[in-house]
Nucleic acid binder design. Structure first.
Length: 478
RNA sequence: GGCCCUGUCAUCUAACGGUUAGGAUACUGCCCUCUCAAGGCAGGUAUACGGGUUCGAUUCCCGUCAGGGCUACCA
């Protein structure tokens, strides 16, 4: 595999795009044997560094009369096209300069008259084979003589890709089917140069939910977007592979990169366009999050917490305090938070919001929340709340911020015995007191996180169970 | 407008011309569970339409319709 930078459009090419592209591809897990960053024996790998090669071949085609000089101005061409469309004709180049005397044309160019070089499209239908679409044929009547070298001296995409693909010995041209209509022009270049035509595979377009081509307003469209959302590369690669392709049998869906390398075949790619389904990508992402090493997820997830906890984790050393035996390791603590929450998110960037039950406690908001209204109105709720609050406030370990899950469980069981409440009627009110919401992760894991978290030197401290309960009691005014 | 590509559940897709048209996501229900999620189980929903060819069309051919692309001195 070769990485080649196609930057013949000066206006749209910037060095930072190249860096971004390379970073994105590497993140996806793609590697190439040759490219601008790694070198190779068929370089240079930036089209802007290959201009001499393109000009040389263009002159060769010109001298063989397979191409010709065109002196038409852009305005003229524009007008021709409009007229053709209005008269319901093919909007192709009129061929005005096709019949120009070559020697005379050369003299005009030497005199400084601006001109482009056009390729002469042959007088027969252009056929080529496509792995996805089969045999494709275009009538030469509908293919314009393409400009291969602009009057500015810059060559054009449809021409340079052919030169590069041939010189770099590319065997398979795999790209989006928006290039299918360009292919006859490219085939004509191969034929004019007497070069063998490679295999083509035109993959279908990916559409948004509205069946329009995927664009910015559909949300994430660049690889970096997905990375920033906290989509794992293997999930994105797996999902993309499933768009337009399925293995023999069509039942298996989970594929690692090496498995894809082994199983994927262009012959099984469907030609029909596919709608991008974010939910299915999330499904795969959840799968890979759950099946990744916890350390990896912790590391990937940490950046999303920097707003919540400051940059303490990122700056080692700052967490050392006088009483280090009392202060838990922030990194380790955050790891347990991430482990607790990661299995329930679609994307890693949803973690801070999930973690708000740990970082943000607001008793008044919990009491006012419409989600909680039903639970708070249950007949048993008042009794449960009263007994639970009393016991936590009286509990010595809770007061010290060192409530253990076992002790918490004991208290809950006492409340259960004293009030007769069980199941939801018992736990929902307690959850509301402790987390502000009637649903959430298991208490066994949550309690230690809250208690340890309260001892951490965070910009905004985490409240322990005792603090939460007393705030709740105050907010309730009972 | 012209040319090209495409058309199986809502979505991604499977099915040498013969299958009760299969799987997955999403959805619904049940189980598990203190809740939610996860997990397990079950369920509904599809061959765009009209003509051919054929004993038999999702499958081959034609037309219609719909969607997409190209129609640049963009890539």
């Amino acid at each position: 595999m070769v990485l080649r930078i196609e930057d013949t459009d000066v206006d749209r090419s910037e060095a930072r795009f190249e860096d971004q592209l390379i970073a994105d591809l590497k993140w996806l897990g793609l590697n190439w044997d040759e490219g601008p960053d790694v070198g190779g024996s068929y370089g240079p790998y930036r089209q802007s560094d290959r201009l001499d090669i393109y000009r040389e071949h263009a002159e060769k085609l010109l001298s063989q009369h397979k191409a010709y000089l065109c002196f038409c101005s852009e305005e003229e061409l524009q007008k021709d096209r409009e007229r053709a469309t209005a008269e319901h004709r093919q909007p192709i180049y009129s061929g005005k300069c096709r019949a120009l005397d070559p020697a005379g044309a050369l003299r005009r160019r030497a005199a400084g008259e601006p001109c482009a070089i056009r390729l002469r499209i042959p007088e027969h239908p252009i056929r080529f084979h496509d792995i996805v679409h089969g045999n494709v044929e275009f009538s030469n009547e509908v293919v314009s003589d393409p400009i291969i070298l602009r009057s500015s001296g810059m060559p054009v995409y449809n021409y340079v890709v052919v030169i590069d693909d041939a010189l770099m010995k590319i065997t398979h041209v795999i790209r989006g089917d928006d290039h299918l209509s360009n292919t006859p022009k490219q085939v004509a270049v191969y034929e004019a140069l007497g070069w063998p035509v490679p295999e083509f595979a035109h993959l279908s377009t990916i559409l948004g939910a509205d069946r329009e081509r995927l664009s910015k307003r559909h949300g994430a469209t660049s690889i970096a977007n997905f990375r920033d959302m906290g989509v794992l590369p293997e999930a994105l690669v797996n999902y993309l592979a499933l768009l337009g392709w399925a293995p023999t049998g069509g039942t298996r869906e989970i594929f690692s990169m090496p498995e894809l390398v082994k199983e994927f075949s262009l012959q099984r790619v469907t030609p029909s366009p596919a709608v991008f389904d974010m939910e299915k990508l999330y499904w795969l992402n959840r799968h890979y999050i759950k099946n990744s090493a916890p350390e990896r997820i912790e590391k990937l997830a940490q950046p999303y917490f920097s707003q919540v906890i400051g940059d303490i984790v990122a700056a080692p050393g700052t967490r050392a305090t006088a009483d280090s035996s009392q202060v838990p390791d922030l990194g380790k603590w955050l790891a347990t938070v991430i482990q607790l929450l990661a299995p329930s998110v679609d994307r890693l960037d949803q973690l801070p919001e999930k973690a708000s039950l740990i970082f943000h406690y607001d008793a008044a908001a919990a009491l006012a929340a419409s989600d909680n209204a039903e639970v708070l109105a249950w007949p048993q709720t008042d009794a449960v709340l009263a007994r639970f609050t009393y016991k936590i406030l009286e509990d010595e370990s809770a007061r010290e911020g060192k409530l253990m899950p076992e002790q918490f469980k004991k208290i809950v069981n006492e409340v259960k015995a004293e009030t007769g409440a069980k199941g939801k009627e018992l736990f929902h009110p307690i959850r509301i007191v402790v987390t502000g919401s009637h649903s959430g992760p298991e208490f066994d894991k949550l309690i230690p996180i809250l208690e340890e978290g309260s001892r951490l030197p965070l910009p905004k401290p985490v409240l322990n169970v005792h603090q939460r309960v007393s705030q709740f009691a105050k907010a309730r005014g009972k």
